[in-house]
Design a binder for these strands. Sequence first.
DNA 1: TTGAAAGCGATACCAC
DNA 2: GTGGTATCGCTTTCAA
Lengths: 340, 340
Amino acid sequence: MAVTIKEIAAAAGVSRGTVDRVLHNRKDVNPDVARQVQELADRMGYIPNRAGKILAARKQQIRFGCLLPDLGNPFFEKVIDGFKRAESELKDYGVTVDIIHLRGFTVQVHIDAIKKMATAGYSGMCLTTLDVPEIQKEIYTITHSGVPVVSVNTDIPDSGRICYVGTDYIKAGRTAAGMLSLISKERQKILIVSGSFQIRGHNERIKGFKTGLEEHKIAYDIVDTVEAFDDNEDSYKLTRDILISHSEITSIFVVAGGVPGAYRAVKELQRNTIIILAFDELPEIKQAIKEGGIGFTIGQEPELQGYTGVMRLFSWLMEEGKNQSHDYITQTIIKIADNM
Amino acid sequence: MAVTIKEIAAAAGVSRGTVDRVLHNRKDVNPDVARQVQELADRMGYIPNRAGKILAARKQQIRFGCLLPDLGNPFFEKVIDGFKRAESELKDYGVTVDIIHLRGFTVQVHIDAIKKMATAGYSGMCLTTLDVPEIQKEIYTITHSGVPVVSVNTDIPDSGRICYVGTDYIKAGRTAAGMLSLISKERQKILIVSGSFQIRGHNERIKGFKTGLEEHKIAYDIVDTVEAFDDNEDSYKLTRDILISHSEITSIFVVAGGVPGAYRAVKELQRNTIIILAFDELPEIKQAIKEGGIGFTIGQEPELQGYTGVMRLFSWLMEEGKNQSHDYITQTIIKIADNM
DNA sequence: TTGAAAGCGATACCAC
DNA sequence: GTGGTATCGCTTTCAA
């Protein structure tokens, strides 16, 4: 049976209230007593009991704020599902999750939203935002004030966040190369359609892809690299024009959104032998895989990212951050028609 | 704020004790009062509070028993890791997990072990055992006495178990075929090395594989189908002999254990173009993938199976089984060198 | 600066 | 049959 506050109190010859004060580093406690009690607690291996803690804490509600640039970007729907699953699982414990919806990756828009969140009195935050100095600074003031922040899906290392929850973009890119190497040993003429050159994850996927091609000894040429801003219309037009002027293209690496657009161009031009390398499991991509137009896609468990992000915040509050939270890297998932 | 027993008691004009009795269908309660209280609880939308429940339940310890034929079978190590993760996560709630280790799939050995477990006073059990009538009956007496049972990794439908937690074997087989179809379009001459013809999961993988080959319009011949009993020495010898007398073989479908043995035979005979279709993520398989001798393997998230199995038992106890537990089917995972 | 006591929600047990 | 009360572990007053 685990050690309780009551037992520590008895052992130290003080009251439970005092032990509680010591354990939470509250003020107004005799330093000598504090030291002694702390030592005793450590020695006895005290671990707070969640159920007791939660029950007592029920008087004040816990609110988490989750920021997401999801407007117009269906990828994030699954992340939201994860936030909601965590919320419903923690409902008993008085946890509520607010989701703040943003459109796109404009720095100022993100800064304004984060500033607003900082004053909203959240007990913790999940942030999916840009990794730029201005935003790092903004987050730092939040974390420094004792409010835990988890970076979800895309990391902001220098911000005091307790951990990153998301995918390994480099590995995802390498995996795409690995799959390509299983399918074909021939020299590849590749068109790269990126989302944005400003987003680190996108660049890392490309980097991982190239590394992977080299590791697998796949000879290749990059015919062109373009930006489609996760927009299917842009992606369609760009892909179409390039395909027309480059009949030698054998594969298209679509880094983020925009897969359906590229796929449409390929279909229209009847370039059926082209291999499309896709990411994530959006409905349109799944459909294309079922049709056979795309062979596979590389997923990143977005639902689990949302879920784990909120759970990490909650654990941090429960354990008072004593456990240095380490990053949580979701699996790099390969989906073909048969295992969807 | 959620409805509590106290509130229901006040609304019904009875004591909390009575409400508690009604909610648990205990005896010694006036049917009229019972009906009225139950109705009120439903109408007010009462959902028991986990934290309160757990705290109160702490007085009596919860012990789960988990049966596993893991001796000599490294696959189950990950399942055990999952059991242990669940145990440590539920430690606060007074949960202990006992693991009962068995060797092989001898019916009588399993029956004896299950009988012994039945008398051990467990609050719930996870069972990985054989789906035969004698065992079904044994389990049924346990479930009928009110003790929840979860079938883990391999299902026992007619046993009163609350749910199955494990993989979809058919889908796993189809996925192997799907991957094969990405790699090669040529007619396949296939050797099938099964674990045991007695184990349903193994047969299902074969069935799924054949279905998949047909769906993907891969022409094929089954050169031979043998049983290797998850033993690498058997697997090595069988594979070796058949490869020698059948130079036409293009691929080997190894249903369960025994992959390292088959791989050794292929390597020794320098039949490097043969495609080995493997399952699970054992260290030796991972090694072979890294070496490039095997292209991929199909996993089933064994750790998650163990974890979820125990968690399901716990939830069932907490919610009094009001929620009909549905099966939990783990993902069919494709692993290549790059995403391991 | 500290102790004592109330209370969070659910359960168990003892009276009546 | 039913009500009252102590209890689980922890937090938070309110006195002292």
